[in-house]
Write a protein that binds this DNA or RNA. Structure first.
Length: 429
RNA sequence: GGAGGAUUGGCCGAGUGGUUUAAGGCGCCGCUCUCGAAAAGCGGUUGGGGGAAACCCCUCACAGGUUCAAAUCCUGUAUCCUCCGCCA
């Protein structure tokens, strides 16, 4: 939800935003509805003011006959008011629906393009593993084979128990997850982020506020008690300060939140059907920042939260690249987004593991998160978020990149203290 | 799951249909007094919306309803408290 006054005065910016994001949105229709809305507001408020005056007269009239006459006259006024209110209500309903569909304006630095294929590489890190050296060359295994050989996963029983895309993580894979969460949590706390464990079940408001609803309706599970299951801790963490006014000195708010995440993956039934890449249930450590309503500030934090995650990737020695997502790959509310993609030897390519975006006040307007300056002015804060690390997806590149000719996998140095070992050995070794 | 009670401004708290324009207090801000401070006195102090402006409208948890008129009456929802039941 954006500022209607700003939209009114800058409609060409929104036309351009819709074009760049490959979203169809009829701004002229919205402005038409808005004109009607404002006309009806004026009409309704004029009638209401009249009614207030008449009502006051009735209260002050002691004479019974005079009272009756005034009440009769005010009844007529009331009917006109009710009619006007009805009309306004109808128009506001349409207006609100359209307001939720207005795309936020992408940053000029966002590349043109239709889909993730058009994303532009920004930088690359790490040396790709060379399994084919002339002396000890071997064919690298994909994570499924690797994990089966190491007794780290059970997909068969996973689907038996949990259905399509179900999985059990076992042995060192389970331990590795704890190690990864713990390590990344510690790193983020060192960077000044406040640690949280966030609820995964949340009311509709937080989903609408973050932009996951109504657009992502098919992606989200709903419980029989009308709570939804969050696909990311961004949702509960953004809901945390909804309808509150913070003071400027409290900003920026920096959180690192752990939560189970649930995604229906509707519409991607044919995609990544095997393995741990795309699953319905996973765990994620997420970073969320609320900062002052200032573009430069937003950009600064965007770079910083991206860098925070890159640092962890480098500590885990996973080769990665950062891409700037193109217009067509941006969500409705996103101003700009970087994805971090991890090198996946079995695919001989990079796969998305992180997503860092900023929204300006798109989310905070919907959630009504504001802050007050020293001189009493109130603004909507800016919001940003990025993955710190998500399991089990990160295991794919972590295991594949560290596999050895003998089928074992080296544990990254920073995780060794949590696992108590340097190497994961195949069954029977 | 069942029974009962509650929700009023930054905080406490009065208020059971019409001078409520939400009393009073605390806190906070400003001014007066003072060399300065304290005390005292005076004034200000929710947040939205419409309008070029004057000004007007809304806001007593939220959403509906009754009424000429709702903080006040009715219905639903949310949250909190007390008790019973169940439970990691």
């Amino acid at each position: 939800m954006l500022d209607i006054k700003f939209i009114r005065e800058n409609k060409d910016l929104f036309k351009e935003a819709a074009r760049k994001k490959h979203i169809s949105f009829n701004i002229d229709k919205l402005l038409e509805i808005d004109d009607e809305r404002r006309r009806l507001i004026q009409e309704t408020e004029t009638l209401r003011a009249e009614q207030n005056i008449e009502t006051d007269k009735i209260a002050k009239t002691k004479n019974e006959e005079g009272r009756e006459r005034l009440i009769g006259a005010t009844k007529v006024l009331k009917e006109r008011l009710s009619e006007s209110e009805e009309n306004l209500k109808k128009v506001v309903k349409d207006w609100k629906k359209m307001m939720l569909e207005v795309p936020n304006i992408p940053d000029p630095s966002v590349p043109e393009g239709e889909s993730d294929k058009d994303n532009k590489e920004v930088r690359k890190w790490g040396e790709l593993p060379d399994f084919g050296s002339p002396t000890g060359g071997f064919e690298p295994k994909d994570h499924m084979e690797l994990m089966k050989n190491l007794d780290l996963v059970d997909f068969e029983r996973g689907t038996k128990v949990s259905g399509f895309r179900g999985y059990f993580l076992k042995n060192e894979a389970a331990l590795l997850c704890f190690a990864i969460w713990q390590f990344s949590f510690e790193e983020m706390v060192k960077a000044g982020f406040v640690p949280f464990i966030a609820p995964s079940m949340a009311r509709e408001e937080s989903f609408r506020g973050t932009g996951w609803l109504p657009q992502g309706k098919d992606e989200i599970y709903k419980t029989q008690d009308d709570l939804y299951l969050a696909g990311t801790a961004e949702v509960p963490m953004m809901g945390y300060y909804a309808d509150e006014v913070l003071s400027e000195e409290e900003l920026p708010k920096k959180y690192v939140a752990f939560s189970p995440c649930f995604r229906r993956e509707a519409g991607s039934y044919g995609k990544d059907v095997k393995g741990l890449y795309r699953v319905h249930e996973f765990m994620k450590v997420e970073q969320v920042v609320l900062c002052r309503a200032d573009h430069v500030e937003s950009v600064k934090w965007h770079e910083e939260i991206t860098n925070n995650s890159e640092k962890i990737m480098r500590a885990l020695k996973i080769p990665y690249r950062v891409v700037a997502n193109c217009g067509g790959d941006l969500g409705l509310g996103q101003v700009k987004k970087y994805d971090i993609e991890a090198w996946t030897p079995s695919k001989k390519g990079y796969g998305e593991t992180h997503s860092a975006s900023y929204f300006h006040d798109f989310q905070t307007r919907r959630l009504n998160i504001r802050y007050k300056t020293k001189d009493g002015k109130i603004y909507f804060a800016h919001s940003l978020n990025n993955t710190v690390i998500a399991t089990p997806r990160i295991l794919i590149s972590l295991l594949e990149n560290n596999q050895q000719a003998d089928g074992s996998v080296l544990v990254p140095e920073v995780l060794q203290k949590y696992l108590g070992k340097e190497k994961i050995l195949p069954i029977g070794r």
